[in-house]
């Protein structure tokens, strides 16, 4: 077994604006099972970071426990990182985000880490609108403990050992929309064409960006009857839209049919270009999104792509009126203004 990836890369690899090749965004070699969907998501993150010309030190990757939460070891080796406690990624991210609002926060979690043990943390991160990207690598099973059904396993889905899941699944996308998330998307690890622009858009979004990525577990949940297998997802996936992420400074050269195109400006000057494929759905109208997701559930399809987008978002710092400067860079005189300031405050209550 190889534990080290050879150091050689394709000699003609292109460089991005900050002078890095895609290889500069990689991490250690994966120790997940061969063919794991999580590795594809890892590759999509690498690709997205390369394409947005990310300087690696401007991102922090934070995860909990599980197969998914191991992946930050396999990408962005030069970024900040914190592998936290099971289900506690949101609170660690909250702390980091409050201390330094200047970084991009990339939370990596799994269906167990989010929808089971971490549910209590997850919902509060959503409603507080933390400015972060929250990726759930969703394989519908507990791969690290030999593939028991997770809370996102669909009712009726058949496990590898042959039993049928009797419980209703938690749809994390619907839940996020319900809780007020401002960017909700679903994708599939086997569709990088869709996933990469979604990750890029999520990183540019100034609020909580939730990405539910269906990621087949090749070892425990890629069997016939499973609703999270490569074959099933490919057969039932229906893209709501085609998405283009147009970075700042780049001319828009895509023309869509009128009426079907949504152009969403992002706060950093880049544009999100959506070409709608799903009928009767408006990604900016929460009710139509909920309807669409419910209909899909009845019809047995898996809508992927951008689901809901709210551009009028106020993130946590905005909501609690913190100072624009990162708290971790505030000096003692600002944090402890001294006796005179205290006197003034006390006086105001008298």
């Amino acid at each position: 077994m190889s534990f080290i990836k050879p150091q050689f890369r394709h000699p003609a690899l292109p460089k991005n604006r900050v002078g890095y090749t895609k290889a500069d965004y990689e991490g250690a070699i994966s120790t997940l099972c061969a063919g794991c969907g999580h590795d594809s998501i890892t590759a999509a993150i690498v690709q997205a970071c390369f394409e947005i010309d990310l300087e690696p030190h401007k991102l922090a990757k934070i995860s909990g426990i599980g197969c998914s939460s191991k992946t930050p070891a396999y990408f962005l080796r030069n970024s900040h990182g914190f592998n936290s406690v099971h289900g506690r990624m949101p609170s660690v991210t909250t702390g980091a985000y409050l201390a330094n609002r200047d970084l991009i926060y990339l939370g990596i979690s799994g269906d167990g880490d989010t929808a089971s043990i971490g549910m209590g943390q997850f919902v509060h991160a959503v409603r507080r609108n933390l400015n972060m990207v929250y990726i759930v690598m969703n394989n519908g099973c507990y791969g690290l403990t030999k593939g028991q059904d997770s809370a996102t396993a669909d009712a009726g889905s058949i496990s590898k050992e042959g039993h049928t899941n009797q419980f209703r699944s938690i749809d994390l996308c619907s839940l996020s929309i319900e809780l007020g998330a401002t960017f909700v998307a679903r994708s599939f690890s086997g569709d990088k064409h869709q996933l990469v622009p979604l990750i890029k858009a999520a990183m540019a979004h100034p609020g909580f960006a939730f990405l539910d990525v269906i990621s087949p577990c090749v070892t425990f949940n890629n069997n016939k009857g499973s609703t999270k297998s490569y074959d099933y997802v490919r057969a039932h996936q229906e893209a709501t839209s085609e998405l283009d992420f147009v970075p700042e400074k780049e001319a828009i050269h895509i023309h869509y049919k009128e009426g079907k195109s949504v152009l969403a400006p992002l706060h950093d000057g880049s544009l999100l270009h959506l070409y709608k494929l799903a009928p009767g759905w408006d990604p900016t109208d929460r009710r139509s999104v909920i309807d669409m997701l419910q209909n899909a559930k009845v019809e047995g399809t898996i809508p992927t792509g951008m689901l809901y987008l709210d551009m009028n978002t106020r993130d946590l710092h905005d909501l609690i009126h913190t100072v624009p400067q990162p708290l971790n860079s505030l000096r003692e005189e600002a944090l402890c203004p001294g006796q005179a300031a205290l006197e003034e405050i006390n006086a105001s209550y008298r």
């Binding site: 050879p6 794991c36 969907g37 590795d39 594809s40």
Partner: peptide, 10 residues
Amino acid sequence: CDACVDVCPT
């Protein structure tokens, strides 16, 4: 599954 594409160093 793309695993080969993702891992290929070159």
